[in-house]
């Protein structure tokens, strides 16, 4: 999904060798630095762990719960994106139980808003759609909710369609952590939660938005898009993110 071999923000460059942890993922041995997460190690070694809220280069929030894995000795499932490795850790990234939970979580996301892939600008380039297929989903067995959600097209270049938002908060984080503008945030609770620009102002009226478009490109679905794209035409470009992170860290 996203490029590999990038240092996470906040992680220090190579540690002395004595600080290496060895662990097992799906029965194979790996070594890692102590500040690395299970997901870091999995990614470096091309082991697939489903995820939606996580995006390399942004802070991790552990919100989508797709990356939950089994760790021997823990009676809880642990989110791979935020769980640090430790010596002797034994991780299982897939099992019938995990697969069932992951499918249900994806299903819940599809029921929550109105995801009509066939008419979406991101059809074919969507992380949610891709993940659903990857996890073997052919239908959603929970009933759909059909909320009335809005489209804010007031910005001159971008659109947000709340019908397609999965509340991963990648836009919130990229705007705050990378662009430094903090235009986006979440308002409301529970099923009524939604992302807003400024203090729930129309995006076009935002005084903080720099129109950089980072939010559009980190958005996993067609919720955020550039104007002027028809169905399936909105391809997201995320190469800037690891690049910015790397540059920033090299300056620190």
């Amino acid at each position: 999904m996203s490029p590999t071999n990038v240092v996470k923000p906040g992680t220090k460059p190579v540690q002395p060798a004595s600080n290496v942890k060895t662990l097992q993922i799906d029965g194979k041995d790996f070594s890692a630095r102590p500040e690395e997460t299970i997901l870091d190690v999995a990614r470096q070694n091309k082991i697939f762990i489903p995820r939606l809220c996580e995006l390399e280069g942004l802070s991790d929030v552990g919100a989508c719960r797709l990356c939950l894995v089994e760790v021997k000795g823990s009676n809880k499932l642990l989110p791979a994106c935020v769980t640090r490795v430790y010596e002797g850790m034994e991780v299982t990234t897939n099992s019938p139980r995990l697969a069932a939970y992951r499918r249900m979580i994806i299903e819940l996301l599809f029921t929550e808003r109105n995801h009509i892939c066939s008419v979406c600008v991101s059809n074919g380039h969507c992380d949610l759609q891709w993940m659903a297929q990857k996890l073997g989903l052919t239908h959603v067995h929970f009933p759909y909710r059909y909320p009335k959600a809005n489209v804010d097209a007031s910005h001159e270049r971008f659109v947000i369609d709340h019908n397609r938002c999965i509340l991963c908060t990648r836009c919130v984080r990229v705007c705050d952590e990378i662009e430094g503008a903090h235009v986006w945030d979440v308002m409301g609770r529970g099923i009524d939660a939604k992302v807003v620009t400024d203090l729930n102002e129309a995006w076009g009226n935002s005084e903080t938005c720099t129109s950089c478009g980072k939010c559009v490109h980190v958005c996993p679905t067609g919720a955020l898009s550039e104007k002027g794209h028809a169905v399936a035409e909105m391809e997201k470009r995320r190469h800037f993110l690891p690049y910015l992170t790397m540059m920033r860290e090299s300056q620190e």
Partner: peptide, 19 residues
């Protein structure tokens, strides 16, 4: 057999549901 998105997800016909 549910054939196609309209039968599987309600798809475009379902777009009226919110209204």
């Amino acid at each position: 057999v549910s054939l196609g998105d309209c039968s599987v997800t309600a798809n475009v016909p379902g777009m009226r549901n919110a209204f």
